[in-house]
Design a protein around this nucleic acid. Structure first.
Length: 321
DNA sequence: TCCATTTGACCTGA
DNA sequence: TCAGGTCAAATGGA
């Protein structure tokens, strides 16, 4: 019925994302040779614009609805159950008064799936458990600064049964620590030696995800999408993307907010990308899965997403400064 | 030597 | 009693 409309939307999105990919490649070239900041800024501006248009195309169509129908058709059980089954809030532990967030991240494209990327905090694994009905064990992590600073933040990471390249992450508790894996507050942002690898990562992800888009009717590719927000790892600094403040945001960047979240704000948001509340997760999950291809590639998610707003600022201009 | 990971045992709540 | 979550000793790498 709406297949014409949907296919048209698909093509538009693919076209837009292809443009983004080319621009990223250009940006990489600029960085690889003699960094041309003027060109870089111009390119990043274009990338941002194209990304927003792509998201607009998706959100203005019945794209998400279609996709969710496809998913439902693939599995006998309700889609939400499929997605969340291994990660539903533990009913047996529901008395724990912890804030639980759910974030889905991709492990990266190509090669063997790895552990989810750095999320701006250092974690220490303290346990692993085989979960009933899950193909993969669940890993238990706590903040490295648990003992030194009494930080109670923990997270649980489990590889998705549906897609081995997907990791489902549940954040519990809030970060009370002040240490970061990124540069210390007060220090000026240094030229990031990992800028190139960051862009290569970006480019690689774009490739994978756009191919998935091109193959409309291949929901598997769609399901291999990450959910916002996302964080690229680039030790020592981690580049985090927040849903409402794009990497190319006009928000002035400072040494404090470069690659890290505001150290003075709620550390929970620093730590866990300030993911949406669990209650909001299901309602937004389908939409986020659709746009997550962009997110996984480093593009900013749709501004329309009503997520927590006190998130990480990231200004591309200072990133390349 | 320090720190992170692994893994079996133990604890807790349903 | 069972499954999920945590502890802590053993182990390995830097």
């Amino acid at each position: 019925m709406d297949s014409v409309h949907e296919n048209g939307s698909c093509r538009l999105v693919v076209t837009e994302l292809s443009h983004i990919k080319k621009l990223v490649a250009q940006l990489e070239v600029h960085l690889g040779e003699s960094p041309d900041l003027c060109n870089c800024k111009h390119l990043t501006s274009q990338i941002f614009s194209l990304t927003e248009r792509s998201i607009g195309i998706i959100t203005s169509s019945d794209f998400c609805q279609k996709r969710s129908s496809i998913e439902a058709g693939l599995t006998p059980s309700p889609p939400s159950d499929v997605v969340d089954a291994p990660f539903k809030t533990n009913k047996k532990r529901k008395m724990m008064e912890k804030r639980t967030h759910q974030v889905r991240v991709t492990s990266g494209s190509g090669g063997e799936p790895r552990t989810p990327v750095d999320d701006c905090h250092s974690w220490r694994k303290y346990g692993q458990k085989e979960i009933l009905g899950a193909k993969h064990p669940r890993g238990y992590y706590r903040c490295t600064h648990r003992h030194s600073q009494g930080c109670t933040a923990t997270k649980q990471v489990q590889r998705s049964d549906l897609d081995p390249e997907l990791f489902d992450v549940i954040y519990l508790g809030t970060h009370t620590c002040v240490h970061r894996t990124s540069p210390a507050a007060g220090q000026p942002p240094k030229p990031n030696p990992d800028a190139r690898s960051f862009l290569q990562n970006l480019s690689a992800n774009l490739k994978v995800k756009t191919e998935g888009l091109a193959a409309a009717g291949e929901p598997k590719e769609w399901s291999a999408a990450a959910t916002t927000p996302f964080c690229f790892s680039s030790t020592p600094a981690s580049v985090c993307f927040a849903p409402e403040r794009s990497p190319f945001s006009s928000v002035p960047s400072t040494s404090e907010n470069w690659g890290v979240s505001p150290a003075t704000s709620d550390s929970n948001h620093v730590a866990s990308f300030a993911p949406f509340e669990a209650a909001d997760w299901r309602a937004q999950s389908e939409y986020q899965e659709v746009v997550s291809a962009l997110v996984a590639a480093g593009a900013p998610p749709a501004p329309a997403l009503d997520l927590d707003d006190d998130l990480i600022n990231f200004d591309i201009s200072s990133f390349f400064a």
